[in-house]
Simulated assay, not measured.
Amino acid sequence: MELVKATKDLVIAGQPYPGFPILLWDSMESCAPANQFFRHYLLRGAIGSKRSWPSIGRALYDFFSFLQAHELDWRDVDRGEAKSLVAAYRDYCLMTCELARNTTRQRLTYICKFYEYALKEGWVKRLPFAFEERTVWRETALLAHIDASGGKTMANDVMPRKHKPLPKFLSMAEIKSLLAAAENPHHRMMMGLALHTGLRREEIAAFPLAYVFDPDNARRTERNVRIRLDPLDGSGMMTKGSKPREIYVSRKFMAELNRYATKVRGERASLSKIPQKALFLNQSGEPYGDDGKSLNRIISQTGKVAGIKVHTHMLRHTYATHTLVSLQRNPASGLEPLVFVQRQLGHSSIQTTMVYLHLVNEMADEAVLAYDDELNALAGAA
């Protein structure tokens, strides 16, 4: 029998769960243990976003496929060999498939959770992995001197050690080349929004037309305008975890957005039979679906024309890095740079934003002043 991956729409206690991942044998016999684990792990809220569910299904599917291809039984945790089943799969991912360490870690996380559940259910006698003490790096903070851990933590011994490279970002020269290569005005404006705000891919795809206005008609005259991103305001906006937040954009860039909305967007809007809420529409006059995944293709292809390797999230890194540099070198603004960038990006924890601080420290004099002004100058010259 061959293992196949599928999805099924479930309704449990009146709650719909579309696209629930399931594993089947080709005889349509259910892989009961794995599917029972899915229901336990996913439906109890361990994973906040349902968009992450397919990746869990793929991880388990790939693991069971590996075992089947090598005629191994997942329950054989006492196989009498130096390398456990999970460790063998780890090495297969890293060496044979040449997967990234973080990708392998993610897969192993779900597989280890499955075995922890299997132990609790009595399906296996012990876990096919152990825990070891590892040294971890921690940010220096208040009361760090009373931390009794000594920088040590207990870690799963089958997990590859974390290797988290600093995020890559574009220089101003590369930004100019990228925008110059974007001959399509719709694509150019999407990139501009990412570079001016640091919005995520799905946030750019869902960014509402209703959020765009003519700043010259507004009563306030500040250099920046505030936009509230609220998934519950009926505009169609989407944010990570559906959490509302406020962002700031320059008046000049808002004027660019307004010009695009009133003079360029109509070309595509006319192709749709119904008015669309999203600012950016595809060639059919519809919003970019699937959380805007096609934006990666658009941006990477534009990057190839410009001779730059780039993806959507790199534009977010670019915004964060240059904005942090600009704020640090302009203390008269009265803003706490890291807190501002955290709020602008929508990070729940400032520790997530700290990575850009480390990046800035390594950049030294390579950073560029007046990032937003230079972007606006590019827009004005277009």
Rank of each mutant, 00 (worst) to 15 (best):
N376G: 03
D62E: 15
L281R: 09
E132P: 03
E336N: 13
Y61V: 02
T302S: 10
G346D: 03
V212D: 03
L324I: 11
L179Q: 02
Q351P: 01
G241F: 08
L99G: 06
V310H: 00
R134W: 04
V225L: 03
L43E: 00
A194E: 10
M189V: 09
L199Q: 03
I247N: 02
P331I: 11
I298W: 08
M254D: 06
T321L: 08
V339I: 15
S294R: 09
A210Q: 13
K304Q: 15
K5I: 11
M95S: 11
L338S: 04
N217R: 15
Q36R: 13
E362L: 06
R297V: 13
V212H: 10
N361Y: 06
Y288N: 01
R219Y: 06
D216S: 14
P165N: 10
R105E: 10
L23Y: 09
S333R: 11
N330Q: 12
L10Y: 00
D290T: 09
S171D: 13
N330H: 15
Q15F: 07
I274W: 13
V86C: 03
N361V: 00
L42R: 01
T153F: 05
F129L: 07
D147F: 07
V264L: 09
P185W: 00
G122W: 02
T104N: 13
V249C: 09
V212M: 12
H317A: 07
A306Q: 09
A118Y: 04
V11L: 14
D230S: 03
V136M: 12
D373W: 12
G303T: 05
I12H: 07
E2P: 10
F169Y: 15
F213Q: 00
A306F: 01
A32C: 06
A181C: 06
V136P: 02
P275M: 12
L199K: 01
L24I: 07
A364Q: 15
L232I: 01
E256G: 05
F66A: 04
W53H: 13
A381T: 12
T103N: 14
D372F: 08
D291C: 08
M237C: 12
M28P: 00
Q351Y: 09
R138H: 08
M237L: 04
M154R: 14
R329Y: 08
D73V: 10
A32S: 14
T239W: 08
A173V: 12
E183F: 00
R259I: 01
H186Y: 12
F20A: 06
L127S: 07
L232W: 10
E336V: 07
G19D: 11
T353N: 05
